[in-house]
């Protein structure tokens, strides 16, 4: 096992390369996922706002 991690003396280079790749890929997924959730939330808020503005006469609490 120790031999595997030593990578024939190139451990620093090999594991750094795999490490930075993993970090960048995970960061891409996180940033993208969080953006999608944020946009969906904002759209939900705006859509319910719009619904209220278009139908001001309805009693509060009624859903369109």
């Amino acid at each position: 096992m120790a031999e595997f991690f030593a990578m024939g003396g190139y451990a620093g280079y090999v594991w750094s390369a795999y490490g930075v790749t993993a970090i960048v890929i995970i960061a891409l997924v996180l940033v993208t996922g969080l953006d999608l959730i944020a946009q969906r939330k904002q759209l939900d808020v705006l859509e319910s706002d719009g619904a209220r503005k278009r139908a001001p006469a309805r009693p509060s609490g009624s859903k369109l």
Binding site: T32, L36, L43, L46
Partner: peptide, 26 residues
């Protein structure tokens, strides 16, 4: 896969923008 997710987020972002513009004119 990530491209599809990003495109979905971008389409939603444009809907948000369009709604914001429409609501500001109400």
């Amino acid at each position: 896969t990530l491209l599809m997710v990003r495109m979905r987020a971008e389409i939603l972002r444009r809907r948000v923008r369009a709604l914001q513009l429409a609501l500001s004119e109400v």
